[in-house]
Design a binder for these strands. Structure first.
Length: 544
RNA sequence: GGCCCGUUGGUGAAGUGGUUGAACACACAUGCCUUUCACGCAUGCAUUCAUGGGUUCAAAUCCCGUACGGGUCACCA
């Protein structure tokens, strides 16, 4: 039996050769310094904030070098797979304007872009390695593996399937292997490692810098029992065939680099450049750990949609984590688009940053303060239609009032920063809607005596209120009202001699404010009264 | 346990041997402004860069050790 026939039995149903694929996926026609990057999520549900982070970084590098950024679905673990996972990923990323030059949706010349559909390709490569005696079948069971690990732990040796521990299976003859297969014993294909743990390899990581490792000497699994490759093998094959130049990924992969280097070497390829990004972390009980979708709601990008935290704010925040000089750049270039920023590996942190919700919300608040009232209205409506139907209906019904309210003290040099998320808008505008303002329940005694309140409202609305007043006239009249009732109309005078007055102009304003809105904190009262109009104001006063 | 990475304030960080008296942003505190709130403005917030030693005229910056934190050692990615 030739090695070719032997390999065909171990990896059956392969129609093409490795060479065929190598020739099929031609070198990309790009400039020397163009970066080809990829993002390779697993379809295990909605997108992780770390995946978004990596996608933003990868995209930036690709587009600033006129390169290519593609999406490859890494679904070689069918156990963890979730239904509709691919669409979930595509949709979530699209929400953040992360599109791809090549993806399962768009296709591209280097596809398929879903690893499970590349099964034959990996098979051809594995077959080739078996033919060259660089890979071999392994029949070892779960239990046997466990006992090896136990023995290694006991003798304080290194843990893993290598050297002496793998020798027995390496030495299996073709006949022995064929017999086992005939008996139906399941197997995986392992790499026949050539590495020596005593040898050092040096890798120049784009972010971490020079890192030294011992060579890999583990006979790692490359093809699983189900015929699909492991991450390591798929990475080597795919990133060669797809001509990736830079592998950007989380730094939990850093310690696998020796495996990857050996894989590329065994295949006879130049490995890509690596850029291991520090992961976003979370603090719990005084300990830091990688932010996790299971434990931390904010690790899931859906969380931001639900809360209504603007897409751009999340992007800006992630950009500041990626390159801390990004924030300064943004201040210096207020009118530039995020896409004009040049990202640098050198400016990336080598240690993981703690996720800071406060900072994100501050960015969101600044961002929302700068958009127009109309845009604010539309985005809020979009959010509400998905997460608060009742609010959405009201927004549509009272569009004019909603926009006018959102516009109070907005389009100016120093705009208000009331909202960090669309879910907060309801609390800031609901009281302006006639239909929702049905009573004036309030703990009035908190702000003044009931008698005083009555007096203020009666006097002000009967003698001073005029809806045609300008803001200056309006405020002068509030002050006149103060003078008449014994409240200080001038704050400075009041502070010098508070006992001489029943209160001050702020107290009077507060009474009017609460009477009209049931809130002690609102944007500019004058604007609110303008928007409400005479009739509605009258109605609200009568409600009391 | 082996291997690897990291350690500048409450947080993100600037910083690559001497204009750093350790930027900037968030948070926090105080004050000013002010019809409330928000905004804005001003001031304060690390006598010190995990720690011990070394090199040097000079170190957060270079070297060595230690401690602490993180990652990884799957037929998961």
């Amino acid at each position: 039996m030739t090695r070719e026939e032997y390999a065909s039995i171990l990896v059956p149903n392969i129609t093409h050769t490795r060479k065929y694929y190598e020739e099929l996926y031609k070198k990309r026609d790009l400039k020397e310094d163009a970066m080809v990057v990829r993002i390779g999520p697993s379809p295990t549900g909605s997108v992780h904030i770390g995946t978004l982070y990596q996608a933003i970084v990868a995209k930036r590098f690709a587009s600033q070098t006129n390169g290519v950024c593609f999406l490859r679905i890494e679904d070689t673990d069918q156990k963890r797979e979730v239904e509709d996972g691919v669409n979930l990923i595509l949709n979530s990323l699209a929400k953040y304007d992360i599109g791809f030059d090549e993806s399962p949706l768009e296709g591209g010349e280097y596809g398929p872009y879903i690893q499970s559909e590349r099964k034959e390709i990996y098979g051809a490569f594995v077959k080739d390695l078996i033919e060259k005696d660089l890979a071999y079948p392994s029949f070892i069971t779960e239990e046997e593996k466990k006992s090896i690990t136990e023995a290694q732990t006991k003798s304080k040796g290194r843990i893993g399937y290598f050297g002496p521990w793998a020798a027995k299976e390496r030495a299996l003859s073709i006949e022995e292997v064929l017999n086992k297969i005939k008996d139906g014993i399941p197997y995986v294909i392992r790499l026949k490692s050539n590495g020596d743990f005593e040898n050092k390899i040096v890798v120049e990581d784009c972010i971490k810098g020079r890192v030294e490792f011992p060579e890999n000497d583990m006979d790692i699994v490359i093809l699983k029992r189900d015929g699909l490759p492991t991450y390591h093998f798929a990475h080597a094959v795919d990133d060669f065939l797809m001509h990736t130049t830079h592998v950007t990924r989380g730094d939990e992969w850093l310690s696998s680099v020796p495996i990857h280097i050996e894989l590329f070497k065994t295949l006879g390829y130049e490995p890509p450049k690596y850029a291991h990004l520090a992961t976003i972390q979370k603090e719990e009980d005084g300990h830091r750990r990688k932010i996790s979708k299971r434990k931390d709601p904010e690790a899931n990008v859906l969380y931001y949609s639900e809360k209504g935290i603007p897409v751009d704010a999340v992007k800006i925040y992630l950009m500041t984590l990626a390159n801390s000089n990004f924030e300064e750049w943004m201040i210096e270039n207020p009118n530039s688009k995020l896409e004009e920023f040049t990202m640098e590996f050198k400016k990336m942190s080598t240690s993981g940053a703690l996720f800071d919700m406060e900072k994100l919300l501050n960015i969101a608040r600044n961002y929302l303060s700068k958009i127009s009232a109309k845009e604010m209205y539309e985005e809020t409506l979009l959010w509400a239609e998905k997460y608060d139907k009742e609010f959405a209906d009201m927004l549509k019904e009272e569009k004019e009032i909603a926009i006018a309210t959102l516009n109070i003290e907005r389009e100016s040099q120093k705009p208000r920063k009331d909202f960090a998320m669309y879910s907060e808008v309801k609390n800031g505008v609901w009281y302006m809607f006639k239909e929702w303002f049905t009573n004036n329940e309030y703990e009035w005694q908190k702000i003044n005596d009931l008698e005083n309140i009555k007096e203020i409202l009666n006097t002000y609305f009967k003698e001073y209120y005029d809806e045609t007043d300008t803001e200056e006239e309006w405020f002068n009249k509030v002050k006149l009202c103060c003078d008449k009732l014994g409240y200080a109309s001038n704050m400075k005078e009041y502070k010098q001699n508070p006992d001489a007055y029943k209160g001050n102009v702020a107290d009077v304003s507060t009474v009017i404010r609460v009477a009209l809105t049931t809130k002690s904190k609102t944007p500019n009262l004058y604007d609110i009264m303008k928007i409400l109009g005479k009739e509605e104001i009258k109605r609200r006063i009568e409600l009391i």
